[in-house]
């Protein structure tokens, strides 16, 4: 293990998060099993009081989780100077078999945690805890993921030895190989650009439409999820290439470095922010007709749709600006 301050911070924070989530999940099970708002029993009143504490704990814990994804990527990127062969986070994540699974799980939890916070926000605004059981069921699904992520992250950092020779991103994200990353890098540029702009156009159109009329929430949410995936693929396929002005370099991590003005962080924040806000609209759809939420959810969804549209527009603007002003011409 390398004793880097950020690694220690990430490990300690993960352990702390796991303890807090395990504590919350314990009460989550009690709530899922025993919640009965009509009962005036002592147990019910204890659960009602306890839910404020759990809600507050989870808001902070998941709030930190949203930041920890970027801290993880930043830390891994900083460590590239330690490993022979590594040029950015891509190589450092490859030093053992835990790096990429940890990253993928962190992205997944980022989205789930964001959605949980949205559901929690809506539930806390109603007077009768209308979606409390759903909220804690979601937490019980999230808990094993968070614990697995902590174990994977610990495994990744513990088995990180400086004498390991790793691959550079040029090798991992190069065309003409049989790996998934190579296949993504080899995707044809023009169809990918068309797919990217169409998905963004549709997302923005449906988002504005939902903001105005409050209709087709599910369709908007699904479109956001598809646009998110297309954007991730697009970053490897053609967006990164425009930033590096090098047609063979498809790394999605080098854009996080100082040489590129840390633009990667802006791109990923916009993308993830848009995805969580947009998918949040769909997650709230089943609850919008609950009596105590009829005055809360539609307005929350409209705000979320607007936030998602703004994030996706920022992402598209950053990408388009680079395509227009890059010295590299991929499509003439």
């Amino acid at each position: 293990m390398i004793f880097h301050p950020a690694i220690i911070a990430l490990c300690v924070a993960s352990l702390f998060i796991c303890l807090m989530i395990a504590y919350s999940a314990y009460y989550g099970i009690k709530i899922v099993k025993g919640w009965d708002i009509k009962s005036g029993s002592e147990q019910q009143l204890v659960l009602e009081r306890r839910t404020y504490l759990i809600s507050a704990i989870l808001t902070y814990v998941f709030g930190f989780y949203l930041i920890s994804l970027f801290l993880y990527v930043f830390t891994v990127d900083r460590l590239h100077i330690v490993f022979t062969g590594a040029m950015c986070a891509a190589g450092v994540l490859k030093v053992n078999s835990y790096g990429y699974p940890t990253l993928l799980l962190k992205i997944m939890i980022f989205i789930f945690a964001g959605l949980w916070l949205i559901v929690n926000y809506a539930d806390n605004r109603a007077y009768d805890y209308p979606i409390i059981k759903t909220k804690y069921l979601l937490l019980l699904i999230l808990t094993p993921l968070v614990i697995t992520e902590m174990i994977l992250q610990a495994g990744y950092f513990l088995q990180m030895h400086p004498n390991i020779i790793t691959s550079c991103c040029g090798s991992l994200f190069s065309e003409g190989k049989s790996s998934l990353t190579s296949e993504l890098a080899s995707l044809p540029v023009v169809p990918m650009e068309v797919a990217f702009y169409l998905s963004m156009l549709l997302t923005v159109y449906l988002g504005i439409s939902f903001h105005r009329k409050g209709e087709k929430g599910y369709l908007f949410s699904v479109t956001v999820a598809i646009a998110f995936l297309i954007s991730l693929v697009s970053i490897i396929s053609f967006i990164s290439v425009y930033y590096y002005e090098l047609p063979t370099h498809h790394c999605p991590f080098c854009i996080l470095q100082k040489e590129y003005g840390y633009i990667g962080y802006f791109l990923y924040v916009a993308l993830l922010g848009g995805a969580v806000s947009g998918m949040g609209v769909g997650v709230l759809m089943p609850f919008r007709n609950i009596e105590s939420l009829t005055g809360i959810i539609p307005s929350t969804q409209r705000k979320l749709a607007l936030i998602a549209v703004v994030f996706f527009l920022i992402f598209t603007a950053l990408v388009t600006y680079r395509i227009v002003f890059s010295n590299l011409v991929l499509v003439s």
Partner: peptide
Amino acid sequence: RPTSGRIHLLGREITSLPE
């Protein structure tokens, strides 16, 4: 808040209400 039991005010249950 009571330890147990419910209080209704003008038909609305108030002991379970958020702060």
